[in-house]
Amino acid sequence: MSSTPAAVPEGAVLVRPLLASDWPAVRSIYAAGIATGQATFESAVPEWEAFDSAHLAGLRLVADTGSGILGWAAASPVSTRDAYRGVVEHSVYIAPAARGRGIGRLLLRALVASAETSGIWTLQCSIFPENMASLALHQAAGFRVVGRRQRVAKMGHGPHAGEWRDTLFLERRSGSAGTD
């Protein structure tokens, strides 16, 4: 018997907008990602109101099986300045039991498509170099490593608490938005 999870068939999961009613499941998935110490420098999940106000309504998605949320993706503006209106930073989080099953690919593909139709010309993110799964996911979706930020911040929680951490900075440029 193989320990590798089976890929989720495309029709088995609906990627749809993240609703306020999804917050308990999204919060749980976010907390699980924080606990790994490989997903974010954040040490606690924000309250719904803070999450809601920080993320763009049209760029918040969940992967839903009808019986549960398997993951989420969301994007935030990088600046309030008009010149950066088409640049967002995004996150993708997958429930521990759903990792390795193609959920991240479905969410990231849908987020890229939503960003394209919203006029977003750059999606960007920071990934810990040790998070090979996220790095591979993003590179397969057309993201490129722009640079490495060395010792950018000290981890305040989890298995790397007290350690200075590097991040890789990735971006994906639109093929249609911002090409003028």
Rank of each mutant, 00 (worst) to 15 (best):
residue 106 L to G: 11
residue 119 G to W: 08
residue 102 G to N: 11
residue 111 L to K: 02
residue 117 T to Y: 05
residue 110 A to K: 07
residue 109 R to I: 00
residue 129 P to F: 00
residue 125 C to G: 14
residue 124 Q to H: 12
residue 115 A to K: 02
residue 122 T to H: 12
residue 127 I to R: 00
residue 100 G to K: 15
residue 124 Q to N: 15
residue 107 L to K: 00
residue 113 A to W: 06
residue 120 I to F: 01
residue 130 E to W: 06
residue 114 S to H: 09
residue 105 R to S: 06
residue 101 R to G: 15
residue 113 A to C: 05
residue 106 L to R: 12
residue 109 R to F: 00
residue 127 I to A: 03
residue 104 G to H: 11
residue 113 A to K: 06
residue 106 L to A: 13
residue 123 L to R: 01
residue 120 I to T: 08
residue 116 E to A: 07
residue 117 T to L: 03
residue 115 A to Q: 07
residue 127 I to G: 02
residue 107 L to E: 04
residue 113 A to F: 03
residue 120 I to C: 04
residue 126 S to D: 13
residue 117 T to V: 09
residue 108 L to V: 08
residue 121 W to G: 08
residue 102 G to T: 08
residue 121 W to K: 10
residue 102 G to R: 09
residue 124 Q to I: 12
residue 113 A to M: 03
residue 120 I to W: 03
residue 106 L to E: 15
residue 127 I to D: 00
residue 120 I to M: 07
residue 105 R to P: 02
residue 104 G to E: 13
residue 123 L to S: 05
residue 130 E to P: 08
residue 130 E to F: 04
residue 118 S to L: 09
residue 107 L to D: 03
residue 100 G to F: 14
residue 130 E to G: 08
residue 112 V to N: 08
residue 121 W to M: 10
residue 111 L to H: 08
residue 119 G to N: 07
residue 116 E to L: 00
residue 119 G to M: 05
residue 103 I to H: 15
residue 127 I to L: 03
residue 100 G to W: 14
residue 116 E to P: 01
residue 130 E to C: 04
residue 131 N to C: 09
residue 116 E to T: 07
residue 128 F to L: 13
residue 124 Q to R: 15
residue 123 L to F: 05
residue 122 T to K: 12
residue 123 L to H: 03
residue 128 F to G: 10
residue 130 E to H: 09
residue 125 C to F: 15
residue 116 E to C: 02
residue 126 S to H: 13
residue 113 A to E: 10
residue 111 L to S: 11
residue 116 E to Y: 01
residue 100 G to A: 13
residue 124 Q to P: 13
residue 111 L to M: 09
residue 123 L to N: 03
residue 107 L to Q: 03
residue 101 R to I: 15
residue 116 E to G: 06
residue 113 A to I: 02
residue 107 L to C: 10
residue 113 A to N: 01
residue 120 I to E: 04
residue 130 E to V: 04
residue 101 R to L: 14
residue 125 C to T: 14
residue 127 I to W: 00
residue 123 L to A: 10
residue 100 G to L: 13
residue 115 A to W: 04
residue 118 S to I: 06
residue 125 C to L: 14
residue 105 R to I: 00
residue 114 S to D: 05
residue 129 P to H: 02
residue 122 T to R: 12
residue 126 S to C: 15
residue 126 S to W: 12
residue 125 C to D: 13
residue 124 Q to D: 12
residue 131 N to Y: 05
residue 110 A to Q: 06
residue 103 I to A: 13
residue 100 G to Y: 15
residue 110 A to D: 06
residue 123 L to C: 05
residue 103 I to V: 15
residue 117 T to D: 09
residue 105 R to N: 07
residue 105 R to A: 06
residue 121 W to R: 11
residue 115 A to V: 04
residue 119 G to V: 03
residue 102 G to H: 10
residue 118 S to M: 11
residue 113 A to Q: 09
residue 121 W to T: 05
residue 106 L to T: 11
residue 112 V to A: 07
residue 128 F to I: 04
